[in-house]
Design a protein around this nucleic acid. Structure first.
Lengths: 204, 204
DNA sequence: ATAATAATTTACGATCCGCTACATAAATGG
DNA sequence: CCATTTATGTAGCGGATCGTAAATTATTAT
């Protein structure tokens, strides 16, 4: 009926929608963080019983991994677009910060970054899964900067990571979009000056 | 013998040192965060049994409150000193960031800020206790800036909170002192330019 | 119809959690 | 010496949590 892909398989059909379940889990994880969400919470939110949960997802960490994939495919910051622009580097990086902030503040019930906050959990597996996404983003930023300013790339990568972690935390602490944007732009001053000075140095 | 204050009280004397116990709890809370430390962990680290724990501290949250007091008295950033200096505002604020970073990176086994990280926990009571310290620090920064630049104070307060949360997170993520210091100084550029521009505006 | 497959429901076992009851030990006050 | 007070150790209760075993139900294949 609903599934276009993979025509009728053998046994009893699943009575809940997989993507809806992952979406419900995503809302929970985003709102409370990985550790604070119990399997019981997930089961209740999805509306199924434990055996269905474990049969469908394997474990809480595996489900979280699916949530991250879903997020990457739908809600994540389009780093590739923002960084491939032919604008000045600092402008691109500030655009990343601003775009991040818009997402962090979009849902007051699930403030901050799903990935950054998820990486702070105690579970090794979930931490690794979220950490992989973070590492990928950091490497994208590194490569983007290193293409033109190899010496600055490492330090800018650290700076971007730190600022985004801070912005995510502040979003969780109730800062609204305007406050977060102001903070992000203030953080952008350091970026602008870094590359402005660098350009001066080259022109000398 | 050991206690100079309050000569011998009535009943059986306590067989463990209160401050040592609080110190052990502080190490645990700082290393793992509030939520990830169980009462069983604390009891084991202190070397006592549950009844002694509850008799002495009341609850995990109460003990955490004691830990925060101990931290404020010993390990916290001396905001009053750093901000009362007659140096330029931006310099003072950068000094705060640098001093913070030194503490965040001091113990690799307990990286980041005890208070900032503690405020992220799920327990309402502990969150409130840590939050009070954060609010006090934020207000100190606000007042310091507002004394000379009332219009900028709120935004600078947000910025400082965000950067410090980010630095604490990066410390937890393994950034060493040098990397953190570089990040803090880059964050300082935004502060310097804010007040440099402001001064220009006045002189016009 | 019967077998095979897979999801669902109910129920439960194992573990850990925070916390306390109870009896005991070690000190002081009369 | 006895009462009082306070801390300690053992043992365990009630609850939550994760995960699974067993029987049941719904669907497809032959």
């Amino acid at each position: 009926m609903e599934h276009t892909e993979s025509r009728r398989t053998r046994g009893r059909p699943r009575q809940f929608d997989l993507d809806e379940a992952v979406a419900a889990a995503q809302r929970l994880f985003h709102a409370r963080g990985y550790d604070a969400v119990s399997v019981a919470d997930l089961i209740q939110a999805i509306g199924i019983n434990p055996p269905s949960f474990y049969a469908a997802f394997g474990s809480k960490a595996d489900l979280y991994s699916r949530v991250l994939d879903r997020y990457a495919a739908q809600g994540a910051i389009p780093l590739a677009d923002l960084l491939s622009a032919d604008r000045p580097i600092a402008e691109c990086l500030v655009a990343v910060l601003e775009e991040a902030v818009r997402r962090y503040a979009a849902d007051p019930g699930a403030a901050g970054c799903l990935v950054i906050e998820g990486a702070r959990c105690a579970d090794r597996e979930a931490k690794g899964a979220a950490g992989a996404f973070i590492t990928a983003a950091e490497e994208a930023i590194y490569r983007f900067v290193a293409a033109r300013y190899p010496d600055q790339a490492a330090c800018i990568q650290d700076y971007m990571s730190t600022v985004m972690a801070g912005l995510s935390a502040s979003a969780r602490n109730g800062h609204n979009l305007d406050r977060l944007l102001a903070t992000a732009r203030l953080a952008g001053v350091g970026l602008e000056q870094t590359f402005a000075l660098n350009r001066q140095g080259r022109e000398k």
